[in-house]
């Protein structure tokens, strides 16, 4: 039942008249990082669904993973997405030097490679559709397409974000808000590389293991 003790000796401080300012950049990137962890759990749910539906009986007589994935062709996608991530990462190296041109160039390269990635993916989808392997065909194909398309949707959203950032860099320069967004976008874009590693290994490579 003892009352809390006072700090030993000296005057106690009750008010902080000039509190140390919160770090606005890290507060926002932390918030964005938490969003990404939440997003990562969306992929956890999708991978869990893939793990359950990647069984012969879930193909319902239709094509199995073995027949729809082509890891060699998908390796070009791997290269595109990783190089795009590298290009954006190098843009943030240019940001360190405060080079507007360098940042813009890196973002443009990242966008071009992102578009290549999405083009390859779309082409893959069209080919599969033409073969009759559509999401409506079986439980396995449903989860296959939805998993890959979810990653693709993230990529498309990232491209839109990059477009907005290009405009904001030109218009505002490197203000605190713009720099914070560029850092958050870096986290977002690099996160897509990590997701793709999982997709490539657990869908494409594992798909051709007998």
């Amino acid at each position: 039942m003892s009352a809390p003790k006072s700090t030993a000796g000296g005057a106690v401080q009750l008010w902080e008249y000039q509190p140390k300012p919160h770090d606005p950049v890290s507060t926002k990137t932390l918030g964005f990082w938490l969003y990404m962890l939440s997003d990562a759990l969306i992929f956890a749910g999708l991978f869990a669904a893939y793990g359950v539906l990647d069984q012969p009986m879930n193909a319902a007589g239709g094509p199995t993973a073995m027949q729809v994935v082509h890891p060699v062709a998908a390796f070009w996608q791997t290269l595109a997405v990783l190089t795009s991530v590298l290009a954006y990462s190098l843009a943030t190296v240019a940001l360190k030097a405060g080079s507007r041109a360098g940042v813009a160039l890196g973002i443009l390269a990242a966008m071009a490679l992102g578009l290549v990635f999405l083009g390859l993916e779309l082409n893959d989808f069209v080919t599969l559709f033409a073969m009759g392997a559509t999401p409506e065909r079986s439980g396995f194909l449903s989860v296959f397409f939805v998993l890959i398309a979810s990653h693709g949707l993230h990529m498309a959203f990232g491209l839109l974000w990059m477009l907005v950032m290009l405009v904001q860099i030109m218009r505002f320069g490197f203000t605190t808000e713009v720099v914070t967004r560029l850092l958050s976008l870096r986290l977002f874009w690099q996160f897509q590389a990590s997701v793709w590693v999982c997709v490539y290994v657990f869908v494409y490579l594992k798909g051709i293991v007998p």
């Binding site: 770090d23 950049v25 507060t27 990462s89 360190k96 490197f174 203000t175 713009v178 914070t180």
Partner: peptide, 24 residues
């Protein structure tokens, strides 16, 4: 947010998260 105002005066490019970018 509240105290962001005072901080905005400092150069955002000097922030450690910008400075940690590394090509290597």
């Amino acid at each position: 947010m509240t105290d962001a105002h005072h901080h905005a005066a400092t150069d955002p490019l000097a922030h450690p998260e910008v400075q940690q970018a590394s090509a290597a």
